[in-house]
Design a binder for these strands. Structure first.
Lengths: 140, 140
DNA sequence: TACAAAATTGAATTCATTACAATTAATAAT
DNA sequence: ATTATTAATTGTAATGAATTCAATTTTGTA
């Protein structure tokens, strides 16, 4: 209900998503935390300020946002889904040492193969894994 | 125990993986079925010929093969892991209409961003989703 | 052939996600 | 404003892939 920031509410209305306190809070959380949170992380991050919050609501909300294209799933983990506010085309790097997920720029046009010329492509995901700069440094 | 094909056994010995009937059967199945099967599909495909087979053995076997680099995980689904016999660098396209997974060639060198120059990259996965040629044809 | 180490098995468990029905809240109509 | 309609929220229960673990069996080796 923070009247200060109408941009989030307008964004939802544009996408034909009905306003609710929970949805606004989730979007606010996503905007403040660009660290590709899981449903559980969003839930734990908000339950303090929204005591009635239910985990099911998080999943419902994510589904609504996914369908509207407001967020994007990050399936770089095999056991749980993460969510990303799309800010443009980019890849994800997961460090197997510290678990952190890094964004990196992409040039997908030079990647796309002619084999898929007749295919309708809706989403493109690029996931790299390995050890990040910081972890390599601390190991030596 | 089919003596006809020693190549699979040699492959395992090279990777320091102890031979077992189950492991040989799983590798034989993977070689015959290049359709990125799930653990469940492998289990159901083999339980007829290996009655004692356990689902846990499939998971254990896949873990051993993954560590040895004989197979590669395909995390294009959000709920279950698929497995691929590595034959070289390629991307995966999943058709949301028929569910089929297609391989396609990649040129990853032109994709890699300088941002990751100091990172140690162990695996690169490219997942596309959409509608395949066949499904587009039948829709029109 | 016998011993030691590793693999297999199945039952029980974990954990993310989904299903569902009752309650509550948000928008539209009066 | 008040009510009616419609959709969202909530909590509990269920699902299902994957893991844990201890007992049994198999494999490789001395």
């Amino acid at each position: 209900m923070l009247a200060e920031d109408n941009s989030i509410q307008d964004m939802l209305r544009e996408k034909n998503i009905r306003l609710s306190h929970q949805r606004l809070m989730v979007l606010e959380y996503m905007s403040a935390n660009h660290n590709h949170p899981t449903a559980d992380q969003i839930f734990n991050g908000l339950k303090g300020t929204v005591p009635s919050l239910s985990k099911t609501t998080i999943y419902n909300t994510m589904d609504a946002f996914l369908e509207a294209g407001i967020i994007r799933p990050v399936n770089i983990e095999d056991n749980e889904v993460r969510y990303d506010i799309v800010t443009g085309e980019h890849g994800h790097f997961k460090c197997d040492s510290c678990g952190r997920i890094y964004d990196f720029d992409l040039d997908l046009d030079h990647l796309t193969s002619g084999q898929l010329a007749a295919f309708k492509i809706d989403s493109r995901d690029v996931y790299f894994r390995g050890t990040c700069k910081e972890c390599l440094k601390s190991k030596s």
